[in-house]
Amino acid sequence: MLAKLIKHETRATSRIFIPLYGALLILTVFTKLVMAIGAPDFFSEAVSNNKVAEIILGISFTLYFVLVVAICVMTLVMIIQRFYKNLFTDEGYLMFSLPVKTWELVCSKLVVGLIWSAVCTIMIFLTFFIFSLGNFSMMELTQAIRSAYSMFYLQTGMELNFFIFEMIIFLLVETVASILMIYAAIAIGQLFNQHRIVAAFGAYIVITIALQIIMSIFMTVFAIGNLENSVLNGSDAITTINWLLNSSTVLNVVMGVGFYYTTLTIMKKRLNLE
């Protein structure tokens, strides 16, 4: 049933995102073409003699910027709105009478939210790649990457791949935890009889403040001492950064699990649709 929920969730969200990403790609390719034909030196200091191309590029880069911001905002809005509207307003009457487990409802929203967050990041990188086509050679790029790897190893005594892997895990866990935090806040809002949206915002703010306090205590007790000892140089610095990164990951896992069970418990035991 989880797969079916994910399928329908994807269907419900892609009708908004596919046109947005389509527009982004078309705009990117169009901009790139105008740049290649009319103003190849757009990014350099040289004064171009093609005023028309410059104006078109000015407009399309503005549009591009607006669209990227819109897509990022939309992704966040979608994560909030699909969870709130589909589960806790009238639509919830349908979703909660389906023969599916509560955790499947939560996870289907979470998985699809994660997918769209990933798509957002990948698509932005893709547009950067399209913009820079022709401005670099593949050989130079591979050389640059290779030297970055050996530099990193030389300075830190650690494989860059491993560090990137840790970084990706951290980002993934961090994203999951922040989505679950939104879910938990919405679920807490449902405990109130009135003004549930306001209550959800309130819950979110309270959780944020509580986490800030916990984090600063955590930093004071553990991290600062280490940072002072290893005055950011060479292998010592990387050990510290590494340690910070991994302990943040662990902390996010703990928080994520907490938010997940809070959400689930409220949905199971205290569900009361308006």
Binding site: A12, E91, G92, L94, S97, P99
Partner: peptide
């Protein structure tokens, strides 16, 4: 989950997207 598969429920709300 098991009873929901056997129970057909019409809510007082219009719950369709």
């Amino acid at each position: 989950v098991d009873t929901k598969a056997k129970v057909s429920y019409l809510s007082e709300r219009t719950y369709l997207n």
